[in-house]
Structures are given as structure tokens and as C-alpha cells.
């Protein structure tokens, strides 16, 4: 019954044999031991399992691992590159988390969102995270965290990076 899936996870190629019914979230958590992606419901309601697949934010509890064959996925574990990602920084600075359980899903949701909409309004942010439930924060500081990240990413983009300067 096993099927081989090959995919890119946080930039690394992985290949595993899986049962077709294996949910992607279980594949990520159990087979790859990337436990930052969480499970909070059975009905595609809570978004704790949100990852990015080919750049889009999706709920990994409602995708079979076999569907991810050949695709590229990114999880919370892949976010920090040369230091924290601005979203991670924003959640820390603005107290955008309490128990931390919804946080990876929120960050991954916001990650895909900010790529499409780099300068969102508060209303647009609230809309973007409306498929991710948080029971602790009341969302106010999550919104602030995402705004922080948007500003930081904008500022970084506006400034030529050091490498570019060296090349020039």
C-alpha cells in the first residue's frame, strides 16, 4: 500500500514511503519530526496546522501527504534564516502569542499573506487570519505583530542589502 513521496521541505529534499491516507500534518509531525506544526481540530476550522505549500498557506490536516508529492512546503521550522524572520520578531516584540499553540500556524498564514499583500491594513490582516483560531490573545496583538513584520520587511526591501553594496 505504500507510495513514495518526494518533496522539498524547508529547502531540503525528502523522500518517504507513506500510506495514501496519511494526512500531511501527520507526515510532517511524525515522519519528519517537525513538531512545530500543530493539530487543533478535525474540521479544517482552526488553522493550527497551517503550512505553506508552493507558497500558499494551507491547512495540512486537510491534505494527504501523497498530494504533496513533488511540491515544496515550508513549515515554521524553516522560517528563521540568518536570524529570526520579521514575523517571528513581530510576534515576540508585540506579545502576539501566549500559549504558543496557534502561533506557528498564524505565522505561516501571515507569511504567505504578506508576500501577496506587503502593506496590508488592519482589516486586511484580520481577514487574512480569519481561518486561524487563537484562544489566548484576542487577536489584537497578533494583528500588531503582523503589522510590525510588514513594516520591517518593507524597510528591509527599501534598503539595499550589504551584499548588493559589495557587488556594486
Amino acid at each position: 500500500m505504500g507510495r513514495t513521496v518526494k518533496l522539498t521541505v524547508n529547502g531540503q529534499e525528502v523522500s518517504r514511503e507513506v500510506e495514501p491516507r496519511l494526512l500531511l500534518v501527520h507526515f510532517i509531525r511524525e515522519d519528519l519530526n517537525l513538531t512545530g506544526t500543530h493539530i487543533g481540530c478535525d474540521t479544517t476550522s482552526c488553522g493550527a496546522c497551517t503550512i505553506n505549500m508552493d507558497g500558499k498557506a494551507v491547512k495540512s490536516c486537510t491534505i494527504f501527504a501523497v498530494q504533496a508529492d513533488g511540491r515544496s512546503i515550508e513549515t515554521i521550522e524553516g522560517m528563521a534564516q540568518n536570524g529570526l524572520h520579521p514575523l517571528q520578531e513581530g510576534f515576540w516584540e508585540k506579545h502576539g502569542l501566549q500559549c504558543g499553540y496557534c502561533t506557528p500556524g498564524m505565522i505561516m498564514c501571515a507569511n504567505a499573506f504578506l508576500k501577496e499583500n506587503p502593506q496590508p491594513t488592519e482589516e486586511e490582516i484580520r481577514w487574512a487570519i480569519s481561518g486561524n483560531l487563537c484562544r489566548c490573545t484576542g487577536y489584537v496583538k497578533i494583528v500588531e505583530a503582523i503589522q510590525y513584520a510588514a513594516n520591517k520587511i518593507q524597510a528591509q526591501a527599501a534598503q539595499p542589502s550589504e551584499t548588493k553594496e559589495v557587488v556594486a
Binding site: 479544517t44 488553522g47 486537510t62
Partner: peptide, 9 residues
């Protein structure tokens, strides 16, 4: 329809 993440799939 549903929520933004569901709409991606």
C-alpha cells in the same frame, strides 16, 4: 466561502 486558507485549496 469558508476561510482564506481553505480557499487556497
Amino acid at each position: 466561502i469558508a476561510d482564506p486558507l481553505v480557499r487556497n485549496m
